[in-house]
């Protein structure tokens, strides 16, 4: 459709109006982020008075200095990195071998194992039994519990299994001739050929780990272990109701609002940094996700 140059006047008008509408939608998507960024760099009084609209008013970085001087901010940031990196590596350590085994035709009970994985996508026991199970396993308040407890999910396994199944058998024959065993075939043939699919799964894991807050909030009591999102919730959601606390933060240079905004900006930055990679692989991933049972 792109290289048609025969427009009528109506077509030209249509194309222009369409672009304007898309532009408006894109701007309204972007605006809240700009607003928050500007708020974080404004002075507390200007923010409180509702004078921040588009650009910072009375530019100051005091809110950031306040945020960065908070030890809990740093420890939660560190924890988020631990959960994201540890969790993603743990996920791949389960998902790659598991998906490979499920893709092998000679596996006895292959239908059963596949169904066992797929069934969990349609039915799960729910919050309470999962929580009690974690408690019974002694995984409350532990780094390891968060990392292992959410390592695998049916969708990622099936996505990768489908990709493995799509790789022609002929690729592994040479390796088999040289006497390679299953581990070697997986590691030397399938993994290198599946880099895009593995990258997609890894990005799914990274994003959900980075953003995950609910279970971390439920399973972790110890402040030292909470990730950034739980800390964020504590500050932004719980303290926002607390007028008195908000007033203690208010001074000429920063206010509760600008401090919240500054924390939001700090936690978005890493997502923005990996966003180009996400864009590259997610579009593919969501289409690979036309998952078959």
């Amino acid at each position: 459709m792109t290289n048609m140059n025969l427009y009528s006047r109506g077509d030209r008008l249509f194309v222009i109006v369409n672009m304007m509408l898309i532009g408006i939608f894109a701007i309204s998507t972007l605006y809240p982020f700009i607003y928050i960024a500007s708020l974080s760099m404004s002075t507390g009084f200007e923010a409180r008075a509702g004078r921040v609209i588009l650009t910072p008013v009375g530019f100051t970085l005091e809110a950031y200095i306040r945020v960065l001087s908070e030890p809990l901010f740093w420890s939660s940031y560190k924890n988020t990195f631990i959960y994201t990196i540890g969790g993603t590596l743990m996920s791949l350590a389960f998902i790659i071998p598991g998906a490979y085994a499920l893709s092998r035709p000679q596996l006895i009970g292959r239908r059963f194992w596949n169904l066992m994985v797929a069934f969990t996508m349609w039915f799960n026991a729910g919050l309470i039994p999962f929580f009690l199970n974690m408690r019974d396993l002694g995984l409350l308040d532990s780094y390891f519990g968060i990392i292992i407890g959410f390592a695998v999910n049916g969708f990622n396994i099936i996505l990768l299994r489908n990709f493995f199944e799509g790789i022609p058998r002929s690729f592994e024959e040479a390796a088999r001739m040289d006497g390679a065993n299953e581990f070697q075939v997986l590691w030397k043939v399938y993994v290198p050929l599946s880099k895009p699919a593995i990258a997609t799964v890894a990005l799914f894991c990274i994003v959900s780990r980075w953003n995950g807050f609910f279970w971390a909030m439920v399973l972790l009591q110890d402040e030292e272990k909470i990730p950034l999102q739980v800390y964020l919730r504590h500050v932004i959601v719980e303290l926002s109701d607390d007028e008195e606390f908000a007033n203690t933060l208010l001074n000429a240079t920063y206010s509760f609002e600008t401090v919240s905004a500054a924390i939001i900006v700090c936690s978005i930055i890493p997502v923005l940094l990996i966003y180009p990679f996400i864009q590259k692989y997610f579009n593919k991933g969501i289409l690979l996700g036309g998952v078959k049972e």
Partner: peptide, 9 residues
């Protein structure tokens, strides 16, 4: 790709 905590914030 932004977490629900940030969106809520």
């Amino acid at each position: 790709f932004i977490s629900s905590v940030i969106i809520a914030g």
